[in-house]
Nucleic acid binder design. Structure first.
Lengths: 87, 87, 87, 87
DNA sequence: GATGCGCTTTAAATGC
DNA sequence: GCATTTAAAGCGCATC
């Protein structure tokens, strides 16, 4: 019997925690969406200034992969350094 | 001649503006990604506490469509009001 | 040598299957487009009868999200049932 | 007074027609969605057979514009024929 | 622990 | 030019 009471209490606590988790995620998603809107706005503004947003997107994509490449190269370098006992 | 100078100046200005636009977008995307990571972390934490993330995701999705529902109803009401010349 | 023959045969078969796939997709897309045209026609007809298509679109959108809502609720219930070992 | 009655009657009829229009559109959209699902299925099947769906999509897109080109050329030809009194 | 697969989200294209 | 529709990317999940 007291098991049931304990279980009911646990469920309440779990429900409360769930509520908290959901609230946190929703808050974060809201902020994330706001940033997405900001980005959209910048593109719209750029377009209004006569820029081709498609090309801007390409530029950004390109810079992203280049950055990834650089990081990869650095990671590889680190690995070599470690292998050579230089790090 | 002075046209060319003016054009060169414009290009410089355009390049500068482009640089600025790209920087702004990259900054915003960085923040956006950080929030995505935060969300992921909350899910991971919830999972670690024994919650079923699938249920949490479903709850959040449901709340989202309910909210959309409410907004759609209001939009529809507005339309009717306008159609009836009451807005 | 016979490997090459086999491979050539495979390529022929693959080409034939590809042709078949493309044909099927094109046929389906054609039908899909026809339906899209039908829908457009209904809207045009409604407009001709004095209806505001904007409102009709909104009504349909609303009914869609309400339906999605219902389905989400059922999905959530299922998840809960499963989580509670009742399904 | 009888104007009001007439108007109320009109509204009822309009509501009935609206219901009918919505039902027709929803039916058509349902069929359209079913075809979309069929197409997705064909792609999935193709993928299961080892084809690269991305390339298949390109093939289909290409064939579509080629077909459009052909139709355009034929239309142009018709025009010329008519202009020459040969059609 | 890695890989692949489907699904959700996000970007691009198109038509009104 | 904006909203809808369609293609692509990213992500979590399941499996091996």
């Amino acid at each position: 019997m007291s098991d049931d009471i304990a279980k009911a209490g646990d469920n309440l606590i779990a429900a409360e925690r769930l509520r908290h988790i959901v609230a946190r995620i929703e808050r974060l998603e809201e902020e994330k969406k706001a940033l997405g809107d900001d980005i959209k706005e910048v593109y719209a503004e750029a377009k209004g200034s006569g820029f081709d947003t498609k090309i801007i997107r390409q530029v950004i994509r390109l810079r992203k992969v280049e950055q990834a490449d650089r990081q990869e190269q650095e990671a590889l370098l680190d690995l070599y350094m470690q292998a050579l006992g230089m790090a």
